[in-house]
Design a protein around this nucleic acid. Structure first.
Length: 107
DNA sequence: GGCTTGACTTACA
DNA sequence: CTGTAAGCCAAGC
């Protein structure tokens, strides 16, 4: 019996993100649904609490617009941008990711 | 112990 | 395409 401990949302979210394969991306809403929450903000919040050093591929998480959730002038944007490009993700002229091609779902 | 904020989403105008 | 509104959970103060 998997008596899941409380606070599982965080754990679930992180666990889901960890399962994202290389070269794939997914949205906050998708993770939220898979993790079992109705609040995509928790996904962002969960990732926001991570430290710079983590096993979580947080950079593979983008918003529904197919863009990085950080401002283009933010340092996080640059880091995520580089990491994604490093995995073969291509950005279009508007810095958007065609996540319909790279989209990933746990099933 | 209660209110505010947050790396968001979806729907409607 | 842009803008506004509601939903929902956890952490921080």
């Amino acid at each position: 019996m998997n008596s899941i401990q409380k606070g599982k949302l965080f754990k679930q979210i992180l666990d889901v993100v960890k399962q994202i394969p290389e070269g794939k991306v997914t949205t906050y809403g998708q993770i939220a649904t898979i993790a079992g929450t109705q609040n995509p903000r928790l996904v962002g919040f969960a990732l926001a609490t991570l430290k710079e050093i983590t096993d979580i591929p947080w950079f593979r998480v983008i918003n529904s617009k197919g863009k990085i959730s950080f401002s283009e002038q933010s340092n996080g944007f640059k880091i995520q941008y580089s990491l994604l490009q490093n995995e073969g993700i291509i950005f279009d002229a508007k810095n958007r990711i065609n996540f319909k091609l790279y989209g990933w779902s746990i099933k």
